[in-house]
Amino acid sequence: MARRRLLLLLKPFDIYPTRQSDCFSRITNPQTLQILGYLDNRRKVHKDAVNFCQDILRQKFVDWEPILRNDLSRPIRNVDLVVTVGGDGTLLQASHFMDDSIPVLGVNSDPTQVEEVEEFGTVYDTTRSTGYLCAATIKNFEQHDHFFQVLDDILEGRTVPSKLSRMSICVNSRLVSTYALNDILMAHPCPATVSRFSFKITRDGQPCSPLVNCRSSGLRVSTAAGSTAAMHSAGGFAMPISSQDLQYMVREPITPGAANSSLMHGFVKSDQSMDTAWFCKEGMIYIDGSHVVYSIQHGDTIEISSRAPVLRVFLPHHLLT
């Protein structure tokens, strides 16, 4: 049997301060030192998780290569599985370099700890990694838990990846090379500047909705996977993870009565597109947060749809049920 080939994509360690850094030696405030100690602990937990995953892979009948996510610059090819170690951000970054031929497994290296939140949550933000799309932690990466032995089940073919819908973006009829797994935000580069744009929903080039003219702080569009993130925080709806529809919301509309209009928030069906025209001198399309940014300008047309290659992801058990 041929050896399986894996790419291990890692969140970098240097995003957290260490106890040896200058910031620790210069600070005497006990609460600030406590917060810095928490960040140092996050670094250690993440590093331990990376080492654990690497130790497990050394024991498996696989060929694997580690790479920091910041060093990823070309499409991922010629591997059988991508394993990301970090959180949803690391999995998102991997998705921008993947088509629908290779599955990905997310390992949440630093899950939020309930005891920590209960003890210190009123003092500082004790939230760690959400890992919404991550099926594994170091607690179940190899060892048996109540649901499955994640890695062994994948390598031995006892589990199959789910297909997550992604978003396709065309600017002036040219396809943007990055597909959005979570969401996009169209806005002015300066968040205090009013954005002017219009949009309508179409199917096969025919309008399915009125033309909506907007003055607002921007337009957010999410996939089902992204509907529990910023979209949900802004008042949107969590969608079934398998949905191929998109959800949109005009952010902070300032036209009188617009905030209560049903046209400001809705859905784009899988066989529909959202056709948008941009009427500001400058603009940005932020893809999956700040991971990828695409510039637009006055007069540009943007077509958004779910007609993009899916991403094959091994999802956590609770999302499948």
Rank of each mutant, 00 (worst) to 15 (best):
R69V: 03
I169Y: 06
P189N: 14
P240Y: 08
Y132S: 12
F314M: 05
N182Y: 10
P191T: 14
E252T: 02
R42Q: 14
L68V: 06
S198Y: 07
L263P: 07
I254K: 05
K269A: 12
G106M: 08
L8R: 08
V268C: 11
F197W: 08
A277T: 14
A49S: 15
L181A: 13
L319A: 01
P161W: 00
P75G: 00
W278M: 14
N140S: 08
T178G: 13
V150C: 03
E116K: 00
V62D: 11
G89F: 03
G299N: 02
N260R: 12
S73C: 13
A180W: 01
P103R: 01
P253D: 10
A49C: 05
V123Q: 08
D152H: 05
D145T: 02
L10C: 15
E65T: 12
R166S: 15
D22W: 00
D55W: 02
A229W: 00
A225K: 08
M264R: 07
R251W: 04
M1S: 15
S168G: 12
M264W: 05
N51A: 14
Q272L: 04
L10S: 14
C53M: 04
G157Q: 03
M249Q: 11
D125N: 15
A234K: 02
V79K: 03
L36E: 06
E119A: 04
Q93S: 15
M249S: 10
N182L: 12
I184C: 15
A135W: 00
T178W: 08
D99L: 02
G37W: 01
L175S: 13
A224N: 07
E115P: 10
T276S: 04
A225F: 04
L39N: 07
L8Q: 11
V292P: 09
P189Q: 14
T32E: 07
E65C: 12
S227A: 05
G106E: 11
G157P: 06
S222I: 05
L185Y: 13
L155E: 11
S209M: 12
V45Q: 06
S101A: 09
H291R: 12
T127E: 07
L68D: 15
N41P: 00
Y294S: 15
P111K: 06
N108R: 08
I27A: 13
Q272D: 09
R203G: 12
D152Y: 01
H232A: 12
G87Q: 04
D271E: 11
A94R: 04
